[in-house]
């Protein structure tokens, strides 16, 4: 007897094949978001706000309502959408440059207001689409096209820890850092995303899922070595785990 064990989420358009770089984790992130929405029965209520950069490419794949914010402004756009549509499931999908550099004010302020939406933060420590410039989360010593000798703390400061920074605020409800580097972590990430979406539907306020990912293309590593770098360097600097869960 045939039994359906797995099918691709309907959240991703049926006819689409991933155009992301080999080893990129955006498609996995999209998959777990889609599966989470489907399993919670929230796809029809979902509205996503995409950041600028590779995150914006999601628009080409998703089958649900979506908008693109100006660079860094996703949390402001999401504030507008969620405030007038409190029954919608609203999430932003932003990279590190978008969320933690140009959009830091919007991110901090939305978190501080305790806006009732979910931020999905893709942290790969580099600007991807524009070709490998230094990000606020670039590791010390890590080379970038705008830091050709590597990040130097004397000149550039240190990698920014967004979850821990937001944890200083009173309002945020759920802050977690996770990764997509192993099958186990993919499942964990999905669990966290579902938890965040559930909190949102219960009106509990601001949540952020920071997902540590790789960027083999701009790290100058092949997919396997990029996984090693993610595990040995990135996750060492940005430890995984629940930073805050008010339940």
């Amino acid at each position: 007897m045939e039994q359906l064990l797995y099918k691709r989420t309907d959240y991703i358009q049926e006819d689409k094949v991933s155009g992301f770089c080999p080893g990129c984790m955006h498609s996995t992130a999209m998959k777990v978001i889609g599966e989470s929405l489907e399993e919670l029965g929230l796809v029809d209520k979902s509205v996503s706000v995409l950041g600028i950069g590779c995150c914006g490419l999601h628009m080409d794949y998703m089958a649900a309502d979506t908008t693109t914010a100006p660079h860094g402004r996703a949390c402001a756009v999401a504030t507008g959408i969620k405030r007038v549509s409190p029954d919608s499931l609203v999430y932003t999908y932003q990279g590190d440059g978008d969320l933690a550099s140009i959009g830091l004010a919007e991110t901090m302020s939305a978190a501080n207001r305790g806006e009732n939406f979910t931020v999905i933060f893709i942290n790969n420590g580099i600007y991807g689409m524009t070709g490998g410039q230094m990000a606020p989360t670039t590791l010390v010593g890590m080379k970038a096209t705008t830091a050709p000798n590597g990040r130097n703390p004397e000149e550039h400061g240190y990698p920014m820890h967004v979850c821990e920074t937001l944890d200083k605020l009173t309002a945020p409800h759920f802050l977690v850092r996770t990764s997509l580097n192993t099958p186990g972590n993919v499942l964990k990430t999905k669990k966290y995303i579902k938890q965040a979406f559930q909190y949102q539907m219960e009106g509990k306020g601001f949540s952020m899922i920071e997902i540590m990912t790789s960027c083999p293309t701009n790290w100058g590593l092949n997919s396997i070595k990029a996984l090693d770098y993610l595990e040995d360097s990135m996750i060492k600097e940005f430890p995984l785990g629940v930073v805050r869960d008010l339940g």
Binding site: V49, T67, V77, G80, R83, E106
Partner: peptide
């Protein structure tokens, strides 16, 4: 940008 969001939701 909040206005962009709210107006995008039809209000």
């Amino acid at each position: 940008n909040m206005v962009y969001g709210a107006a995008s939701a039809g209000v």
